[in-house]
């Protein structure tokens, strides 16, 4: 027991230095004013940004749902394949992550632009006029697409990990007992993969809600998400660290609530099994 404590010391020190202390500083900034005095005056700014929070949550939720819908059948198919195929597929899913997140988003920019790949293709087959374009970039859809593309692996991997542990014989048993495909999924596969779904949802939703830069690159910087609003508060011309810290605090609470809900659902699930 003591031995394991000593081994954890570097990690504890790391956490203390780079997680606990910074969190304390965020808290400190959130409840002080420029003179360092205690104030609740930063709180109204939360309401001022309520719409930004709303749209961030909405985009994040949509992206999470799309990721789940895409990842579920994908992860299931991978988990049922042969060992070799599984390894290759996981590798292919990880492959884009070897490239920097920003670069991948830039790539989407040149695909979606007015004179980008998609629009040129549409022009070529005559679906849009020569000087016309299908508005793809700088829309909410482009932002959600960027999120889905960037965070999809975070949904596939936990789902795959959980699903690969589902024994084929369980599924076969359900089939032997007369279940059709939907029943097999509804009664066996989905319930057994809920822990993976929950961690997948957390791993996609949390970064999606707090993302910045995607809005700037794919959304045309017209509507800020909460991540951008916080960034603005720290690097803008009239940067206000105190308001920025307050907004980050709200975001953190939001994420904590999200994790608490999924965590409890997870525990509930365990109790069921």
């Amino acid at each position: 027991m003591i031995k394991s404590k000593a081994a954890a010391a570097p990690f504890t020190a790391w956490m203390l230095l780079f997680t606990i202390i910074p969190l304390g500083i965020v808290l400190w900034f959130a409840f002080t004013n420029a003179d360092g005095q205690f104030t609740l005056g930063n709180l109204p700014h939360i309401w001022a940004q309520a719409a930004t929070f709303g749209i961030s949550i909405f985009y994040g939720a949509i992206a999470t749902v799309i990721c789940l819908l895409l990842a579920f059948p994908l992860a299931y198919n991978i988990s049922r394949a042969t060992e070799r195929v599984q390894q290759t597929m996981v590798m292919i899913i990880m492959l884009p992550m070897w490239m920097n997140f920003l670069l991948r988003t830039y790539a989407w920019m040149s695909i979606l632009e007015n004179n980008g790949f998609v629009n040129q293709l549409l022009r070529l087959i005559g679906l849009v006029g020569e000087n016309d374009y299908l508005p793809l970039i700088n829309t909410g859809g482009a932002v959600v697409l960027g999120m889905v593309y960037n965070f999809l692996p975070f949904m596939v991997l936990p789902l795959y990990t959980v699903m690969s542990k589902i024994d084929n014989s369980v599924i076969e048993a359900a089939q032997d007992l007369g279940s059709n495909v939907f029943q097999v999924f509804g009664k066996v596969v989905i319930p057994l993969s809920i822990p993976g779904m929950l961690s997948g949802i957390t791993m996609v939703f949390v970064p999606a809600v707090s993302t910045f830069v995607i809005t700037k690159l794919l959304g045309g910087s017209k509507t800020l998400m909460i991540g951008d609003a916080i960034e603005q508060m720290f690097i803008g011309q009239g940067a206000d660290y105190h308001v920025g810290a307050t907004l980050s605090l709200v975001l953190m609470i939001l994420i904590l609530v999200c994790m608490a809900v999924t965590g409890m659902a997870d525990k509930g699930e365990e109790a069921d099994v």
Binding site: W47, A48, Q49, A50, A51, T52, F53, G54, I55, I57, F58, S221, K222, T223, L224, D228, A229, Q232, G236, Q237, G238, D240
Partner: peptide, 21 residues
Amino acid sequence: TYMDGLWMKLKLPAAGWAWCT
């Protein structure tokens, strides 16, 4: 500060989104 406030307001989504929150 006033200008920055207006700038943030300009980039705000439609007010209806507040109810989503």
